[in-house]
């Protein structure tokens, strides 16, 4: 007797529409890292003997990340990356994946780890819903912050990488970083970015530059 595998009506509906990834569907890899996070710290008080510690975000904005690293000094490679996060499924999965990426195959060279982009992580996760990309960008920042902390602690101050911040609108005190954040939060038009940042509202002469930055960051994260 043969039985045909039946597809339930519900699962048949749960299809990703073509040409869009704007859906609430997590890939199996994301789920695996969410439900079984790798290198997660369950007791921060037990964390001793690490070489660098980084923390970014705040609970108010919905994401906060803390990263501990151990470094193979001779080889300038990351040996361990442990982490904690206050964040949603994407944030947890992305940080877990990042910790795997930088420690697999004998550990990643520090120079290479510094250049990891959020897209590198989402690619390994097999993509995230567009609206959730925002949640995956804290991991690489927290990692850079931990590496900088290691540079300072190990007297290599010349290697510290500063996050570049440039004032775009003096009156509104808006930086390129603020515009990047606004784009990540889904603002992809001048009007939407202005609603979040007030950039150029009193200083219309900066608007062409703002528009350029919106295009740049939109392509960087969503292109």
């Amino acid at each position: 007797m043969t039985t045909k595998k039946k597809i339930s009506a519900a699962s048949a509906v749960d299809v990703v529409p073509k040409g869009t990834n704007d859906v609430w569907v997590y890939t199996d890899i994301v789920k695996e890292h969410f439900f079984h996070p790798k290198n997660l710290v369950m007791d921060a008080s037990a964390m001793k003997g690490y070489d660098g510690l980084g923390m970014v975000g705040s609970p108010a904005c919905g994401d906060m990340m803390k990263i501990w690293i151990k470094v193979d000094k001779k080889d300038d490679r990351l040996q361990e990356m442990k982490w904690q996060t206050f964040g949603c499924g994407s944030a947890i999965a992305a940080t877990s994946m990042l910790s795997v990426m930088v420690t697999e195959n004998g550990g990643m060279k520090i120079a290479q780890a510094l250049s990891i982009k959020p897209q590198d992580i989402t690619k390994r996760l097999g993509d995230l819903p567009t609206r959730k990309i925002h949640c995956s960008v804290l991991g690489d920042k927290a990692l850079r912050s931990a590496i900088n902390n290691y540079f300072i602690k190990s007297h290599q101050k010349d290697r510290v990488v500063k996050e570049q911040v440039r004032i775009i609108d003096k009156a509104a005190n808006v930086t390129d970083h603020d515009i990047e954040e606004a784009v990540l939060e889904g603002a992809q038009t001048l009007e939407a970015v202005q609603k979040k940042t007030k950039v150029g509202v009193g200083n219309p002469e900066v608007i062409p530059e703002v528009e350029q930055l919106i295009r740049f960051y939109t392509e960087k994260y969503f292109g």
């Binding site: 996070p37 923390m55 904690q84 996060t85 206050f86």
Partner: peptide
């Protein structure tokens, strides 16, 4: 909570 660095 164990996995979270936040203590409000």
């Amino acid at each position: 909570r164990h996995a979270s660095p936040v203590r409000v």
